[in-house]
Amino acid sequence: MPGVTKEQIARAKEWDLLSYLQTYEPQELQKCGGREYRTMTHDSLKISNGKWNWHSRGIGGRTALDYLVKVRGMDFVKAVETLCGERGAAVRMPSDIPHKEKPAKPFLLPPENRCGTAAVSYLLGRGIDGEVISQCIRKGILYESRNYHNCVFVGKDSVGKARYACLRGIYGTFKNDVDGSDKRYSFSLPSADEDSPFVAVAESPIDALSVASLLKMQGEDWTKNHYLSLGGTAPRALLTFLHDHPAVVCISLCLDNDKAGILGMEKIREAVREDAELSRRIRVIVDNPPPLVCGKDYNELLKQKIAARYEAENREKTQAGRVCGMEK
């Protein structure tokens, strides 16, 4: 291959991902049980038994070379040179390298806009029920940011302290977590009953609120469930939520109906099975993605249901008008 020799490629492939990250980016590793690790940048990227797998993207490999190319998007030649030390990046032994971890950024909620009508209008436009929105605002888990008028979805710990927040732009496609957020405490809307045994789990706050809105739309008591957003597909937030809510025994997995969502539901089941306390307590885990014909996520399903109801109501009005006209 132009630029690198077969010998260099062979040397580069000697680096497994765990050794590479332990050597050069230890701050990127987080232990998640036994001999398994996950990366801080991609919490669904797991490293175990000499292999790595980025579950949310459905890709994986064995070597650091695979990782640099498939995950970091590095050119193959540059990745080989990096691992072989031709550019000075990976030539020293681990004991020679001083590690300086970056200080964690403090978690600070964005300033609130006192008039949050733009965020409310945006969510209403996405089909979220007004009562569901009001409940979130009253509980202090939803507001509009002052500077950019984003929706701010707040996650709190078991004592009510804000530990996480994600932003959703109301004028475009902007999405981001606030710096310093702890994804173990992702956004959740609690049940009216503290001891509710039910939790509905979605990937995003808007999908979680869409599930609540659909239940209300169907005439069901939507307040009997807890609603949790994972902030993705990783099980971390759900495991923390379940340990903080010991009354929960029934889980409805309302993740997206796509490859990442289906794989995410499998990983959640696996994580619950591997947890000694939860494996004994949890009685029911139901895979409940939206029907694929209605879109891949629950907000798409909600908007289709609203449109169908609106169309049916208009048909009824039109038919009623024709009947009245005939009677005259």
Rank of each mutant, 00 (worst) to 15 (best):
Y148L: 14
R38H: 13
G130W: 02
T39E: 14
I137C: 03
G160E: 10
S158A: 15
M93P: 07
I128L: 09
Y67F: 15
R163F: 05
L45G: 06
I59F: 07
G58I: 08
S56P: 06
Y67N: 10
K102Q: 12
A104S: 14
D157W: 05
G73E: 11
Y122K: 06
T82W: 01
S145F: 01
R57N: 11
E112Q: 15
Y67G: 12
G116C: 05
A165C: 11
S56W: 00
G85T: 11
A104H: 06
K100D: 09
G160K: 13
I59R: 02
R87N: 15
D75H: 08
L45M: 13
K78N: 13
T117P: 01
A64E: 05
Y67M: 13
P106S: 11
I97Q: 07
P98R: 07
A162P: 14
Q135G: 04
G60H: 04
S158M: 14
L68I: 14
N147E: 15
A89V: 10
G116F: 00
E81G: 06
V154L: 05
L124K: 11
R57K: 15
P110T: 03
G50H: 08
G127D: 00
C166R: 11
K161M: 15
I59Q: 06
K78I: 11
L83P: 02
L45W: 03
L68N: 09
F76W: 05
N49H: 11
K46D: 01
L109K: 04
I97E: 07
A119C: 08
S95A: 14
V69Q: 07
Y37P: 01
W52I: 11
C84K: 01
